[in-house]
Design a protein around this nucleic acid. Sequence first.
DNA 1: ATGCTTGCAAACAGTTTGCATCTAA
DNA 2: TTAGATGCAAACTGTTTGCAAGCAT
Lengths: 135, 135
Amino acid sequence: MSVQRRNTKQRALILDAVRNRCDHPTAEDIYLDVRHRDERISRATVYRNLRLLEQTHAITCVKAPGGDRFDLRLDAHCHVVCIECGTVIDATVPYDKAADQSVAQATGFTITSHSTIFEGVCPACQARGQVKAAN
Amino acid sequence: MSVQRRNTKQRALILDAVRNRCDHPTAEDIYLDVRHRDERISRATVYRNLRLLEQTHAITCVKAPGGDRFDLRLDAHCHVVCIECGTVIDATVPYDKAADQSVAQATGFTITSHSTIFEGVCPACQARGQVKAAN
DNA sequence: ATGCTTGCAAACAGTTTGCATCTAA
DNA sequence: TTAGATGCAAACTGTTTGCAAGCAT
């Protein structure tokens, strides 16, 4: 609305890269993907555009250990992250829009959204952990 | 239970520092507080112990832009963070324990907890923002 | 005495920034 | 033509780690 934006080849490639991933890639993942299609793109451009896309609400970022994970924003949903290996998956819990309002009223904040992150250990790491725990 | 721990002066000071703050301090905040009482303590010790206390579940950490914020763990609760200035406050929304179970069943993860972070703009930043928006 | 802990400094990871160059509009 | 965008490299921030010395047990 207020800021001018240009349609650069790089910008398109980056958004495209996020679109084409069903997992929750890190900035580095996106960089590597895009790099595949454009040898000369730099990390700075990827970071700059990811942040831009986030501000535009085209994508969201999930704060996970080892860096932010990005997600094409189709609808609000929760995430589950493995505290061992950092894997992020989507959760099937419904987004509670009413909570935003009640928090806004209680705190005076303007709430734009909320994100729920479940922390735990993924099946793969559980298996690995049980071996270690046997000592 | 399994790991040996020693009661060092530094460890006590760090836990004490977290106890004595009602806000949500960063590791640096804690470092500065403890530094007040022990001239020679190092950042490394603070980071190491905060992480240790987190593993012990004595404290929790909230991932906020600009670094993790620590919180004495009295009971599980949600947080509200200002996307402008980074302030973190507690939210009055009840913790939904049932959600952990349902996510665990749906995903196969072992869920230890979940944290909900509301994002928005705090009253102070709203005021500041309106001035800027007037352009 | 043993080995967990510390302090220091250097290493590290993820991200941001300054600047000259490039390019969409 | 010109302001936004890029690529590069260097800077930065928050955090971790290796190691020798220290101290709780």
